[in-house]
Design a protein around this nucleic acid. Structure first.
Lengths: 153, 153
DNA sequence: CAATATAGTTCGACAGTCTGACTACTTACA
DNA sequence: TGTAAGTAGTCAGACTGTCGAACTATATTG
């Protein structure tokens, strides 16, 4: 969404944000493709990126990725079939299972991180250190009112 | 994508942007639902938002929305079936057809704009006028290197 | 005018998504 | 402590979103 530009003087900030965020995703996906990783989709990666060090419950993944449990199940199924994650029983809750990253996934994370770092460097070069700092500050503040799932408050 | 937070010190700026952008989309969709509009999906709205005053070619819509022509065809089909757009011949090119918004769509645009305005107001209240200005400035600059389809340069 | 390019569609396949219904386990409390 | 209510996850079915390939019709170009 984020409407076009019927008023060209002041493009809506949400649209500007959408454009930049989309570019980031495109670039990270492209970087993975270049690294020979083509058996993981964007939706799957969004879920995988939220799996914690010691595994994460499906329900938590669903919540953070903002999809239903059923959708998360389907995405994890595919990630599992591709060998990027595994499901292990949750020792603390017999109903639950923890979704954990495998070694194969571990090899893929640095590709994403490197591209993110590269993007950040380019942005800083384009904006200058001062504006980059201001951007980060504003976005961090904004998170307080736009992120329903930030961890440490 | 935009990886989680294995290093909590400095969340990647792209992730922060993604969070805020997603919140915007969610809110605009929710506003439409509240206004009784539930026969248009997010993907459809993204395309509809790019239709110009005098109609836009399908290929252009596809390009701007960053989907293939086939996908755009399917989305426009659904928008047309729901009565939000119509296809008319392009007087300047016999192969092409212009996708135009109908009156029904016209009634829906203000709902989106109002919510966008409301979000912007809230953000400004949270950040303060100064940081809001800085945010806008940084994002506008960033657009130069992240938006392959900005119109008037 | 023939060769090539472009606008759009149709077809077929599959991923992503949801609602609803179900099983298995846990928690609360009477 | 035993039952009722809640929670974690899955399965089934339906629809949307998405793409690649192949096609039709019209334009452009030499």
């Amino acid at each position: 969404m984020t409407s076009g530009r019927s008023n060209p003087t002041e493009p809506f900030v949400g649209l500007l944000m959408f454009i930049a965020a989309r570019d980031v995703e495109n670039r990270v996906v492209a970087a993975m493709r270049r690294a020979g990783i083509d058996d993981i989709t964007l939706a799957q990666a969004r879920v995988a990126a939220r799996i914690g060090e010691h595994g994460t419950r499906l329900t938590d993944l669903a919540e953070q990725a903002q999809v239903t449990k059923q959708t998360a199940t389907a995405l994890v199924d595919r990630l599992e079939a591709a060998g990027y994650v595994e499901r292990v029983p949750d020792p603390r809750d017999g109903r639950a299972r923890l979704v954990r990253l495998t070694d194969k996934a571990g090899a893929l994370m640095p590709v994403a991180r490197d591209e993110e770092q590269r993007i950040e460097t380019e942005w800083e070069a384009h904006l200058g250190a001062r504006r980059m700092r201001q951007l980060r500050e504003a976005l961090t503040l904004l998170r307080e009112i736009t992120d329903p799932y930030r961890d440490e408050p």
